[in-house]
Design a protein around this nucleic acid. Structure first.
Length: 907
RNA sequence: GGGCGAUUAGCUCAGCUGGCGAGAGCGUCCGGUUUACACCCGGAAGGUCGGAGGUUCGAGUCCUCCAUCGCCCACCA
């Protein structure tokens, strides 16, 4: 609690800690974070409404990406906001095991030692992985702390821990029993580099320039010998020719229909295969005849099934051709392609080569070109799960922000295909299935069995494969809360969670699957009600950040340079949901500058406070207290409106807009105007602005805190040394967030109007000074002619003098009372300002200036007159719009008359 | 082949259900050691809101078409 206890000197008097002139995040952040953590403020407080966020798994590779930093920032903002509102907030940090990525990294480490995982064997390999993972995990939690994540670290969840592992197994078993998980031989995507099966989602298609080889397939005669006739077949993958088991043509195709039933000689390998007719063959594409390679092409696989064709597999797991490929056996797949082409050419079977650009599937992880191969894998039948997942969105039980992603989600769900869930890697949740050496039974169980569920024999072996990482990720919202433990206390309290925050690139991988499997496991209860999707964070040049481009901006180095608050500000203020943003030093500087400005404005306010100052703000009467100076009533009114705006925007998850509003109020109204106005009084020994300064500062710190937690906490703790929190909150993180006052007691429209008038006067004078190059240090006399704003101008005269650097300031009621010789005049809607600048004024120039103003106003008047003369406008536009235009017209006319008067006086 | 997004000041972007005399930050220009802050203060310049139609009293905002850029989905060889 040292932070809330001011240092005492020998007399026991309070000695406020010094505040350096520049805010230094590095001196503050780590200490503040420890204070929060030690005080236990990250744990649920037991408030009435639960608010839950489960932190998305960061990248276990140990690198922190900007996208994840944004996720953490947004979630932390929401968590802090809810916590300050008294909600029972639970934020569980978690790590998923990122199976393929980790596997690859560890294998790479091994390769550097000249080893492969097979040299180590499963057990020793997994030991290596755990070493790696533990290193990464500690790095990850440090990273999150530095981002300011106010999560309950003591309850960190890792999907490979016991609890989540039970959840994975339980889900697998239930799905299996419900017939939604099955094992089968299908054509799947295979990455020869990662040497595992991949789901469709993990394959990224990219257009690549390649070739279209047009190849002659000789027709065979009845005896099976090649004839001189041939069929031309086009392919982009000649290396698969040895696996051809048929040629297919469209039965409607007049060119080829008569050939159905005959055979061709496969030009590589020489096997004799039939010509079949199949509707799937396009009449337009290629040459119209298709080579059928069921072992290495998904379309062909289906054709093969329809015609009972044999399936030939000619690829080894690492992408070489196997003995089925005959003379090409042992060649790497692309070397084989070249060889096949060369052979065909030599035998005059290559008709032509056409340049061709087509989509090629790449492994998301390794970038290697994936191969479709036939393999025995585990699959999840997702169509039955998709139905309730669609309903949940249709019925509005889950809402997307921004809503346009609803369609993306629906489209995917409606066209969903079975999910390949088994992976041939070792790190991951092992498939809870055991096979028996003595019988055909498979045992599927949550607990490791010791005998076969079929024959009871002890000779059982567990399936070697592991599950797709996204399988366990899909359980995240409930598995982290303790499911399937029936006594898990968090589950009934904190499930469903409220907001799921993530990048839109991950809707299918994660969001959709969380919805499906959570609904399934949680008896139809949705995992979260809102999916908030942020855009991608791009590099300064607009390209995607990637290591190969070398344009990755590391959040930690940004924090080192600018501070966490600056990073959070930048990344949140410039992000609207679903839209990408670019990050640059310039933007980060803006964030740092704001933190510094907060620091300095606070420094000023706090430096003004002395022992014995009255800091309590009188409670507002039903209306704002007319006894208070107008600027006090103004800022209090504006501040109340800010609270209302922030409340509304945060409720709508419009974080960026809320932050902009906070910034604008703080900088432009509080710092630039109110503090400057207050200085005038304080210099004269009037202490009455202090309660207002302290009050507004206090509200601002609270409002800003979720966004910029460190600088606000550091300041606030110094603030409460001077004026304790009314609710005795020990730290800002658990102080009360400002909420709108239902009575709107501080609203004061009159004060807002009056102060706006004073601002107009000041700006007009400053404008004239700048335009006429009056030296900034020089004090000149000025006249303010105010009709309705007269009283305000009088009351604020000392402030206007100070802010506009005019002295003496004459506040007069009519223009006659101001001089007209050697003056510069500006007519405002609220009155006019007259600056007698004598020798500085060139009468000719002033005439021109006034003339230009008159002309500008004349244009506006004409426009408004035209609009108001339009009967259609008067009848169809809402009355208040018409009234507004009429008022504008009146004001413009009045202003013009004022300028014309000044012009006439000039002669 | 389908779908989505972007196009607003020199740059990066806000502008929610149509009322906008279109905003911000950075940059530019002019002027400032006013004892919180030069990571600052004051002032200014700068946009026919990608193009063409349409709906409307009124369009940056809604509709149609087009152009450019980007993304996602898709088994067409």
């Amino acid at each position: 609690m040292t932070a809330t206890t001011p240092e005492a000197n020998d007399d026991g008097a309070r000695v406020p800690r010094a505040m350096p002139a520049t805010y230094e995040p590095a001196d503050v952040e780590e200490r503040i974070y420890r204070e929060w953590e030690q005080a236990g403020h990250f744990r649920p407080s037991g408030g009435e409404r639960p608010f839950t966020i489960v932190m998305p798994p960061p990248n276990l590779t140990g690198e922190l990406h900007m996208g994840h930093a944004l996720t953490v920032a947004v979630e932390d903002i929401l968590v802090r906001w809810h916590r300050m509102r008294g909600d029972d907030t639970l934020w569980l940090p978690g790590v998923d095991h990122a199976a393929i990525a980790v596997n690859t990294l560890v294998e790479r480490e091994l390769a550097a030692e000249g080893l492969s995982r097979h040299d180590l064997g499963r057990e020793r390999f997994l030991e290596r992985v755990w070493e790696f993972v533990n290193r990464s995990r500690s790095r990850i939690s440090v990273q999150h702390r530095r981002l300011g994540a106010s999560a309950d670290w003591e309850r960190e969840r890792f999907t490979m821990d016991e609890g989540p592992r039970r959840a994975v197994r339980q889900t697998f078993v239930t799905l299996y029993r419900d017939g939604l998980i099955y094992r089968g031989e299908r054509i799947i995507n295979w990455c020869p580099d990662c040497q595992t099966a991949l789901s469709d989602l993990e394959v990224e298609h990219a257009d690549e320039a390649g070739s279209f080889w047009h190849i002659r397939y000789p027709l065979a005669d009845d005896a099976g010998a090649a004839t001189d006739e041939h069929l031309v077949i086009a392919t982009t993958r000649p290396e698969t020719i040895p696996a051809d088991t048929a040629v297919a043509v469209n039965p409607e195709d007049p060119r080829y229909a008569h050939l159905i039933g005959r055979s061709v000689v496969v030009p590589a390998g020489g096997r004799l295969v039939p010509i079949v007719g199949d509707e799937a063959v396009s009449l337009e594409a290629g040459s119209g005849a298709l080579k059928v390679t069921p072992g290495h092409d998904p379309v062909d696989f289906e054709i093969g099934e329809r015609h009972g064709l044999p399936v030939l597999s000619i690829l080894t797991p690492d992408g070489h051709l196997n003995e089925e490929a005959g003379e090409y056996a042992g060649l790497e797949r692309f070397a084989a392609r070249d060889r096949v082409v060369a052979d065909l050419q030599a035998r005059n079977l290559l008709e032509r080569i056409e340049p061709y650009t087509h989509a090629v599937g790449h492994c998301q992880r390794s970038g290697t070109i994936v191969e479709p191969i036939v393999s025995e894998q585990w699959f999840m039948r997702v169509a039955p799960l998709a139905r309730p997942a669609l309903d949940a969105v249709h019925e509005g039980r889950i809402r997307f922000v921004p809503p346009r992603f609803t369609r993306t989600y629906e489209h995917w769900m409606e066209n969903i295909r079975d999910w390949t869930i088994s992976r041939q890697i070792w790190w991951g949740h092992r498939i809870p299935v055991w096979y028996c050496d003595d019988c055909d039974a498979v045992t599927v169980a949550v607990e490791d069995p010791n005998r076969c569920g079929g024959c009871g024999g002890a000779a059982i072996r567990q399936d070697e494969d592991t599950l797709d990482t996204w399988f366990s990720s899909a359980l995240w919202p409930h598995s982290t809360l303790g499911w399937p433990d029936p006594d898990a206390p968090d589950l009934p309290r904190f499930y469903p969670t409220q907001v799921m925050e993530t990048g839109y690139d991950i809707i299918f991988f994660w969001v959709a699957r969380m919805v499906m499997l959570s609904l399934y496991n949680m008896r139809g209860e949705v995992p979260f009600d809102t999916v908030y999707l942020h855009g991608l964070v791009r590099a300064e040049d607009g390209t995607k950040m990637s290591k190969s481009h070398g344009n990755v901006v590391d959040p930690l180095s940004v924090i080192d340079r600018y501070g966490t608050d600056a990073l959070r500000y930048t990344v949140v203020a410039s992000s609207s949901p679903g839209n990408d943003q670019r990050i640059s030093d310039q933007r980060l500087e803006a964030g740092r500058n704001l933190a510094n400005k907060l620091w300095n404005a606070s420094r000023y306010v706090l430096s003004m406070v002395e022992d014995g100052d009255e800091l309590a703000l009188p409670a507002p009467p039903a209306g704002a207290d007319p006894a208070l100076p107008v600027e006090d009533r103004w800022i209090l009114s504006r501040c109340e409106r800010l609270v209302e705006t922030a409340d509304e925007l945060l409720g709508k998850l419009e974080l960026a807009e809320a932050l902009r509003q906070l910034r604008d109020f703080f900088w432009e109204e509080f710092a630039d105007w109110y503090i400057e106005l207050a200085k005038v009084r304080l210099r004269e020994g009037d202490r009455t602005p202090l309660p207002v300064l302290v009050h507004v500062l206090d509200r601002l710190l609270r409002l800003f805190h979720p966004f910029m937690p460190f600088v606000t906490e550091e300041i606030w703790q110094r603030l409460v040394e001077r004026r304790p929190d009314p609710e005795a909150a020990p730290m800002l993180i658990v102080a009360r967030y400002p909420e709108p006052d239902p009575a709107a007691s501080w609203h004061d429209a009159a004060a807002e109007r009056e102060l706006a008038a004073a601002q107009d006067f000041v700006r007009a004078i400053r404008n004239i000074r700048a335009e006429k190059h009056v030296e900034a240090g020089r004090w000149v006399a000025a006249y303010v002619v105010g009709a309705e704003a007269l009283e305000t101008a009088r009351a604020l005269a000392p402030a206007i003098e100070q802010l506009a650097r005019v002295r003496p300031l004459h506040v007069v009621a009519t223009a006659d009372e101001a001089p007209s010789d050697g003056v510069v005049t500006t007519v405002l809607p609220v009155g006019r300002v007259v600056l007698p600048l004598g020798g500085l004024v060139d009468a000719e120039a002033e005439r021109a200036r006034l003339g230009a103003q008159i002309e500008r106003l004349a244009g506006e008047i004409a426009r408004l007159e035209g609009k108001l003369a339009n009967e259609q406008f008067r009848t169809r536009a809402p009355a208040e719009v018409v009234a507004k235009e009429e008022e504008r017209l009146a004001t413009a006319r009045q202003q013009r008359a004022g300028f014309e008067g000044s012009l006439a006086e000039l002669g």
